[in-house]
């Protein structure tokens, strides 16, 4: 191995069940869409090599299960993340309301060192569906994202491949920034297991 480590960006996709997390990942990585994706159990994993400016990075994407029951295993997947994508369905109000809960859940379980600066982005998916069925307006969503801490917001159709590239481009840039910040922070950054994790997570809920 070379002395300079390959740049790996770890990205987590979160959001309610059925909002299109798997479809987004598949559209971004494989440029395809299918109606036949099964419900994700635990988390699925894909990677993609990306050019960012003059360097090539590898993005590792964890597409997680949306059902609440699976949240307890987030720890196994969230740790060491460089960016977190929060997805909702613009035609489903509840999935929009869950965004904040997903963000908090992530911060707790990922044990992020500087929660205020950790990069999130929000994606409103399924904009291909009939405009009449839409229940969350762009304006409302953009406003909430601002309240969440100026989180970048994109509206996409994973089905038609609309805006997916653009969203992931921001994801990769923000993730790279985070990764480099982490690197400076932590000389020997190698995803080591944080032995304090359990204790800390437990304490703060007391």
């Amino acid at each position: 191995m070379s002395s300079r480590k390959k740049t790996l960006l770890k990205v987590i996709i979160l959001g309610d069940s059925g909002v299109g997390k798997t479809s987004l990942m598949q559209q971004f990585v494989n440029k395809k869409f299918s109606h036949q994706y099964k419900a994700t159990i635990g988390a699925d994993f894909l990677t993609k090599e990306l050019p960012i400016d003059d360097k090539t990075v590898t993005m590792q994407i964890w597409d997680t299960a949306g059902q609440e029951r699976f949240q307890s295993l987030g720890v196994a997947f969230y740790r060491g993340a460089d960016c977190c994508i929060l997805v909702y369905d613009v035609n489903n109000a509840k999935s929009f309301e869950s965004l904040l809960a997903w963000k908090d859940e992530f911060l707790i379980q990922a044990n992020v060192s500087l929660p205020e600066t950790f990069p999130f982005i929000v994606i409103g998916n399924k904009i291909d569906i009939d405009e009449n069925k839409r229940v969350v307006s762009y304006k409302k969503a953009a406003q909430v994202c601002q309240q969440l801490g100026n989180v970048p917001y994109f509206e996409t159709s994973a089905k038609d491949g609309i805006n997916v590239e653009e969203a992931f481009d921001v994801v990769s840039r923000n993730a790279l920034q985070q990764e480099e910040a982490n690197d400076e922070f932590n000389d020997d950054y190698n995803d080591a297991i944080n032995i304090h994790l359990d204790g800390e997570a437990g304490n703060c809920t007391c």
């Binding site: 099964k38 159990i41 635990g42 994993f45 295993l73 196994a76 997947f77 190698n190 995803d191």
Partner: peptide, 19 residues
């Protein structure tokens, strides 16, 4: 390699290898 069993075996248990 930093692989945790939970990362792959969770589904094996949850869906009894049906996937």
């Amino acid at each position: 390699q930093g692989v945790e069993f939970m990362q792959f075996a969770f589904r094996w248990m949850n869906c009894l290898l049906m996937r």
